[in-house]
């Protein structure tokens, strides 16, 4: 059965690429281009995993992650965060908020697909 991957990213060309490679890997893709839309997707579309950018309009990636982890119903959703290379501060913040994995931009497509697949089969603590 296909898994549903939520992509939260406001750069349309990056979204197009991610959609293509995840579709090619056999997953369905739903897209949000801002933090509020991401939360709506979590509530309404029951994604199996989220690929989340940090710099987003309205609510940033950290705020979205914090909201997800604060909700009993959604807190076990695996979240893969897209960070800038070398931004240790961002990684520390995301870790403290309970992120499952990071991938640094500019990423390789294989890296993203492998990470998504790995997280989909992994058991999340408290999940």
């Amino acid at each position: 059965m296909n898994k549903r991957v939520a992509i939260v990213e406001d750069e349309p060309h990056i979204v197009e690429s991610l959609r293509f490679i995840l579709n090619r890997a056999g997953h369905d893709v739903i897209v949000a281009d801002n933090g509020d839309a991401a939360i709506e997707i979590v509530k309404n579309d029951s994604p199996d995993i989220m690929v989340l950018d940090i710099m987003l309009p309205i609510k940033n990636g950290f705020e979205v992650l914090k909201w997800i982890r604060s909700q009993t119903r959604y807190r076990s959703l695996p979240v893969l965060m897209l960070t800038a290379k070398g931004q240790d501060k961002d990684r520390n913040t995301a870790t403290s908020l309970g992120v499952d994995a990071f991938i640094a931009k500019p990423f390789s497509n294989d890296e993203v697909v492998d990470c998504v697949n790995r997280l989909l089969v992994a058991e999340r603590p408290g999940g």
Binding site: I14, P106, N109
Partner: peptide, 16 residues
């Protein structure tokens, strides 16, 4: 941030 995003889009599309 802009440079990083443009580079990401180029790399990902090129790989595809």
């Amino acid at each position: 941030h802009r440079i990083l995003n443009h580079t990401t889009a180029i790399r990902s599309s090129s790989e595809i």
